[in-house]
Computed example of a mutant assay.
Amino acid sequence: MGSSRTDETLESYGADVGARSGTLAGVREWIVVEGNRVTVAALLLLGVVVLLLVLHEIGIVSFVNPNSVTRVASGMIAGTFSLVTLVVSVNQLILSQEFSAAGKARDRLEDVVEFRRDVAADVGVPASPATPTRILELLVESIRHDAADLADAVTTHDDENVRETVTQYTNSVRERTERVDEVLEKGEFGSFTAVSAAINYDEAWHLHVATHLRGEYGDSLSPAAMEHLDDLIDSLKLYNVAREQFKTTYLQRELTRFSQLTIYCGVPSILSAILVGLLFADFAGPSVSTVVLPYVVVALIIVGLSPLALLASYILRTATVTRRTASIGPMIPQKDPEEGPFDVTYGEDR
């Protein structure tokens, strides 16, 4: 193929989704993806507390008008019931994926068994591990090993351009897989550490580059180099499938946990909204001192908003994970169509 390459390096176009570029980006990544969801929800509620108290102190909001406060309580009750309905819908969606007839269940099992057999053959073990995290670790190690073998196979290549290009690519693969492996070793299934490492590894870009190198230099590479390149492509494909399975299983657990926490907070939320209305049920005015009234109302409002805070924290993560893994294989929607070191035109290889 006669494709031209820009002066940019191969690895500069890797799909490093979620990569940090500063302190602000790191904080944003923690809030959106990495942070514990309950902690993020608590921080959101703390921000609401500070906002309401500050607005009260400077005289923008007040808590002595019974009509206004009771309208807020009514809205909180209606919103909580709507949120519970949403949670029920989420549970129905999850359950719909679990119910299946015997034939469909058998097909799903056979697909999983076949995939695990392919993984075992690729990584050279008697049987693939039971834990998804360990499967990803072995596949990352296999990718790194295949890249090292490919680099060794081209060290004696006559064409310096081919040798440097392939070596540059394999160095990028080995560097990034080492970072992923370090994170995976610290993570456990059920924690988001391993999932974050899995979705942030740019195997889609590495698969794209490997496919391009095979097509462009396939005639000049030695049979051993071509074999190692094909092994690398197969390992990257298996990693992509394993990541999707891991992500799906984790999101199911995540949404189930969100449903449980929302139900736990739903009843106290409704009770707190009812109490807000009952505080102003007396014809003489609020049933507590006006000195402590703002703090009591704010506390009850925070309890009432807890399901909404949980919804925001969990949806931020699940939506981000889904967006970053929306495509399968070397289809990278987050990259600009003009970006990349490969510029190809129709029919140039004919």
Rank of each mutant, 00 (worst) to 15 (best):
S3Y: 01
D7V: 14
E8L: 04
E8Y: 07
S12P: 10
A15E: 03
D16A: 06
D16Q: 10
V17K: 01
A19Y: 00
G22F: 03
T23E: 09
V32F: 12
N36T: 03
V38R: 02
T39M: 12
A41R: 12
L43C: 08
L46Y: 12
V49H: 13
V50K: 12
L51N: 09
E57V: 08
I60A: 14
S62L: 01
S62H: 02
T70F: 11
V72K: 03
S74E: 15
A78L: 08
T80Y: 11
F81V: 11
F81Y: 13
V87E: 02
S89K: 11
V90A: 03
N91P: 03
A101N: 15
R106Q: 15
V112Y: 14
E114V: 02
R116L: 03
D118W: 13
D118G: 12
A120F: 02
P126T: 01
S128A: 09
A130C: 08
T133N: 03
R134M: 10
L139D: 04
E141V: 09
S142N: 08
I143F: 04
D159Q: 14
E160A: 14
N161Y: 11
T177S: 01
R179P: 00
E182L: 15
E182Y: 10
K186H: 09
G190W: 06
F192I: 13
N200T: 14
A204H: 04
W205T: 04
H208E: 06
T211C: 12
A224I: 05
A225P: 09
H228W: 04
I233R: 15
S235Y: 06
S235Q: 07
K237C: 09
L238V: 12
Y239C: 02
A242I: 07
R243E: 08
E244A: 13
K247R: 07
R253N: 00
S259A: 11
L261A: 08
Y264K: 07
Y264E: 00
C265R: 04
P268N: 08
S269C: 06
L275M: 11
G277F: 07
D282H: 06
F283A: 15
A284D: 12
S287P: 01
S287A: 04
P294F: 04
Y295S: 09
L300Q: 10
I302F: 13
G304I: 01
S306P: 15
L308F: 10
L308S: 06
A309P: 07
R317Y: 01
A319Q: 13
V321I: 13
T322Y: 09
T322P: 11
T322K: 15
R324F: 11
R324T: 12
P330M: 04
M331G: 14
Q334N: 15
E338I: 11
G340L: 08
F342L: 10
T345K: 14
D349L: 06
D349F: 05
D349K: 02
